[in-house]
Design a protein around this nucleic acid. Structure first.
Lengths: 159, 159
DNA sequence: TGATACCCTACCAAATTTGTCAACTAAAAG
DNA sequence: CTTTTAGTTGACAAATTTGGTAGGGTATCA
């Protein structure tokens, strides 16, 4: 089970936004600098988060990104869905591979297929449901709180 | 968040073992056939599961693999750790990238670094803990039960 | 002894992920 | 109204992971 850097980068950017005084846009450059990651890459991520209504953007001088919802309303599941999702849900179908020459026997293939399908589906669904549930329970607010309690360092906010 | 096919293949094989009458070894070929996946690949997976004490093996004719623990004692977290783990925990360190020319300003880099590190670590740990928790709660036994209840479809017995 | 079936290592091709570049558009400041 | 800031967008390249194959070895039983 892997947590992509994309999603963690995205969530880190959101934490940065949430930690900033409300209603004041923060530029990509600023976030990138504070979080020590590539401007160009972060741009992509924030763009997608904006398209899905997680953040809002303001253009021009003094512009930047702002949270579009309350931190309690944004979950890790949301971020992952927006940034990692889209393309492949990886399963859902095609899970039992073509098996090029494994099932050489034509006869009796049907029953096996159903059996394999059923187990594959069950395994996937049980795991997926549980994980989705816990990811949905981690909110941006939780993370902000954790950050505050975690270290004592006041995060040096100026500019 | 992605569930690798490796781990689902592995878990499917374990379900297959659990569903078989206990104490009777099942050959890789047999599992591969029933689950419709490549023998050679499955061999790798079962090999690693054996090294980590999840299954046991019996060599020679009539040999095969057997569960080494009760189905309640084997969780999805175990399988994932054995099959996907090892190499990259993906985070833990190095999460804040080199940022070639982003941090052009040499001064004040330290404080930023600490700040970035702290948030990165917090985000990662919160999410990881939750997910690990839910994966640890899904046992092989649960999956077997789900498979039994899931499909009422009598699997089309004619062959 | 020979067939069966696990043991183990190395390797590969393709997909995915991570990240960069560069040109473009919108809007506010001066 | 011009400049400058800053988001928009898409193409593209490098690195890593993934899913899978190949092929020889080794133990065990009939």
């Amino acid at each position: 089970m892997k947590l992509s850097t994309r999603s963690t980068y995205g969530m880190r950017a959101l934490v940065e936004l949430a930690l900033t005084a409300r209603h004041r846009p923060v530029s990509v450059a600023s976030i990138a600098k504070r979080q020590e990651l590539s401007v160009a890459y972060l741009e992509q991520l924030l763009h997608r988060l904006r398209q899905q209504g997680v953040v809002g953007s303001i253009r021009g001088p003094r512009g930047g990104y702002v949270l579009a919802k309350d931190p309690e309303q944004i979950t890790m599941a949301d971020v992952i869905r927006v940034l990692d999702g889209e393309n492949g849900e990886t399963m859902g179908k095609g899970s039992t591979n073509g098996s090029s020459r494994v099932g050489a026997s034509r006869a009796a293939g049907r029953a096996h297929h159903r059996h394999a399908q059923r187990i594959a589906h069950t395994v996937w669904r049980c795991v997926h449901d549980r994980v989705a549930e816990s990811l949905g329970a981690v909110t941006l607010q939780d993370l902000c709180n954790a950050v505050r309690t975690d270290g004592e360092d006041p995060p040096d906010h100026r500019f």
